[in-house]
Computed example of a mutant assay.
Amino acid sequence: MKKIFGFGKKKKGLPSPSKSASLPVGSGGYGLRERDLGKLHRAAATGDLGKLQQLLRKQDSNQLDKENRTPLHLACANGHLDIVSYLIENKCKLNLCDNDSRSPLMKAVQCQQEKCATLLLEHGADPNVVDVNCNTALHFAACIPNISLAIELLEHDADIDAQNKDGHTPLTLAITENHQGMVEFLLQKGADVHAVDKSKRTPLMVAASGGELSLIKILLEHGADLSHKDVSGCTAEDYAHLGGYSGLGKQLSEYARWKTVEKPSPGNKKGMSVFSSPDRFGDLGYALGAPATDKEAGIDSLLFLTGSEKFQ
């Protein structure tokens, strides 16, 4: 997806950022050459427990290599649980960071070494350490995506709304990567649907810019605000248009109108949402189930539940 990070079209006053430098990408594994590693780090990276035990009789378990990696970093990145366990038993420091300010826990998450990550968390590793781009371990889990790792992190007090240097939360990054399951999970766990980045863009704007209908529905079901404006005064509707999804932009506009209009009725003193009046759909000139006409296929019509205010 990633439409939010580079628009093809510009609107006067609208920030047009390049792809976010703070987005955690890549497999996360260290590109290792044996000749660049000392004996202790080599043993940790290759999973040679016997050699590691021998070396630790005289060497420090927190020894740093030229990239400021500890043996624990390398063991976690490569999933050597027995090495990780032994280093922890020998009181190694859990939160030392490498040259990218990433802790062993972050490397375990980034490389999807779940058992290593769980063991670190159980022994007190900090899930809220931030790297050079202010990403936390949960940002990495959201981007992969890996819900089981996200569960472990949240159970050990990871900040669900932590912001990286661009102001992106794990929820925003999950939307950027179009990981619907992770988006639903984070929202169910209480992630802030109204979180804004450095340019005051919301998760809904990110989804709208990429034409991600399923994500838009989920966000609106969780109360996303269509009227919110970014630093340039643009709404989610504007982001849909700028992303090339004019049909979606029109649908968002209609949805916003329907949400704000109430129709009094004898049995409803507070008024009834226009969602309860199917006839109004025709009045608004909107054809439910019409084929997509946007620049990319798959943008189907938004379907409304009669008598409710959410998509299905």
Score class of each variant (00 low, 15 high):
residue 100 D to P: 00
residue 98 D to Y: 09
residue 66 K to G: 02
residue 73 H to E: 03
residue 154 L to G: 05
residue 115 K to L: 11
residue 89 E to V: 03
residue 125 A to V: 00
residue 56 L to C: 03
residue 162 A to V: 07
residue 54 Q to L: 06
residue 143 C to N: 14
residue 67 E to A: 11
residue 59 Q to T: 09
residue 153 L to I: 07
residue 123 H to T: 13
residue 130 V to E: 15
residue 93 K to R: 15
residue 150 A to T: 01
residue 66 K to M: 11
residue 60 D to I: 14
residue 160 I to Y: 14
residue 67 E to Q: 11
residue 99 N to S: 11
residue 101 S to V: 03
residue 105 L to V: 00
residue 165 K to I: 14
residue 137 A to Y: 09
residue 77 A to Q: 04
residue 79 G to W: 05
residue 161 D to E: 04
residue 145 P to R: 10
residue 106 M to H: 06
residue 116 C to T: 07
residue 153 L to P: 09
residue 100 D to Q: 09
residue 149 L to H: 05
residue 93 K to T: 07
residue 85 S to R: 14
residue 160 I to W: 10
residue 163 Q to M: 07
residue 63 Q to N: 10
residue 52 L to T: 03
residue 86 Y to I: 02
residue 57 R to S: 14
residue 60 D to F: 11
residue 84 V to I: 15
residue 114 E to G: 00
residue 125 A to W: 11
residue 72 L to N: 13
residue 57 R to T: 12
residue 128 N to G: 03
residue 158 A to I: 03
residue 82 D to N: 15
residue 93 K to M: 09
residue 107 K to F: 02
residue 133 N to Q: 12
residue 60 D to L: 13
residue 127 P to C: 08
residue 55 L to V: 06
residue 150 A to Q: 08
residue 98 D to T: 05
residue 73 H to K: 07
residue 138 L to F: 03
residue 129 V to A: 11
residue 52 L to M: 08
residue 60 D to Y: 12
residue 103 S to P: 02
residue 145 P to Q: 14
residue 153 L to E: 10
residue 161 D to T: 07
residue 156 H to C: 09
residue 73 H to S: 12
residue 152 E to D: 15
residue 86 Y to A: 01
residue 116 C to V: 00
residue 78 N to L: 08
residue 153 L to N: 14
residue 135 N to K: 06
residue 68 N to C: 15
residue 164 N to V: 06
residue 109 V to F: 01
residue 91 K to Y: 01
residue 67 E to N: 13
residue 147 I to H: 04
residue 122 E to Q: 05
residue 137 A to C: 06
residue 135 N to Q: 14
residue 141 A to L: 01
residue 161 D to Q: 11
residue 94 L to K: 00
residue 143 C to G: 02
residue 98 D to L: 05
residue 55 L to A: 05
residue 137 A to I: 04
residue 85 S to Q: 10
residue 153 L to H: 13
residue 127 P to E: 01
residue 55 L to F: 05
residue 80 H to V: 08
residue 138 L to K: 10
residue 76 C to Y: 12
residue 136 T to Q: 13
residue 120 L to W: 08
residue 112 Q to F: 00
residue 120 L to R: 00
residue 159 D to T: 08
residue 99 N to F: 04
residue 75 A to W: 12
residue 163 Q to S: 04
residue 108 A to G: 00
residue 111 C to P: 00
residue 155 E to M: 08
residue 144 I to T: 02
residue 163 Q to G: 04
residue 103 S to A: 10
residue 117 A to I: 05
residue 154 L to H: 06
residue 98 D to I: 02
residue 58 K to T: 12
residue 118 T to R: 01
residue 121 L to N: 08
residue 76 C to W: 04
residue 53 Q to T: 12
residue 96 L to C: 04
residue 104 P to T: 03
residue 57 R to L: 12
residue 134 C to I: 13
